[in-house]
Amino acid sequence: MRVLTAVIAIAAGVLIAGGYFFPALTDVQTLLLNWAIILAGFATLVGIFNLIAVHTGKIRRGEKGSVYSALLFIALVATLFFGMILRPDHSTMKIVMNGIIIPTEAALMGMLTISLLYAAIRLLRRRADMMGIIFLVTAALLMLGSATLPFGNIPLIGTLLSPWVTQILALGGARGILIGVALGTLTAGLRVLFGADRPYGGT
């Protein structure tokens, strides 16, 4: 099984990677990628099934918080039921999206405002080093530069300093991070293609 999985992973990877550089392999690449799309969709379903299994297990065992699990299970089954019948783009299903999903997520995101502000204020209490100071000063500067006054942008900061920091200084660091991420991605992908890493459980 280990050899089989490694062979499948390497073969699929080589064929798909070849499609980027050799036009003859483009059709093969498209075919394999579309197969992978279907598998990814199924993986999503499996993940949701796992969620159901976990919470039904909690309900069955009567664990602490099983009431919440029951609520989750009921909401999930009901949404899935109506979604399967009505389709996700039905106007009734938009109630689910606009009434529950969006408000809840947005409210959670909004609460992040308080948490971020709280953390920023307390940061130097715990970590008063150069990195922390630069981090906080930069954040404050860009906050100031993002806002305007009734008469227009904040002079110098909003018009000059903030854009320069964003487009020059932060750009250099971001580019370094991006290149580092790309190198790491490259390494990780090559290790998979060479069979050195087998995150699919083949090790």
């Binding site: 073969a11 699929a12 990628l33 992978a36 998979v192 293609l193 087998r198």
Partner: peptide, 9 residues
């Protein structure tokens, strides 16, 4: 394995 190989490529 197929998914991982495809993703890696």
């Amino acid at each position: 394995a197929f998914l991982v190989g495809a993703g890696a490529a």
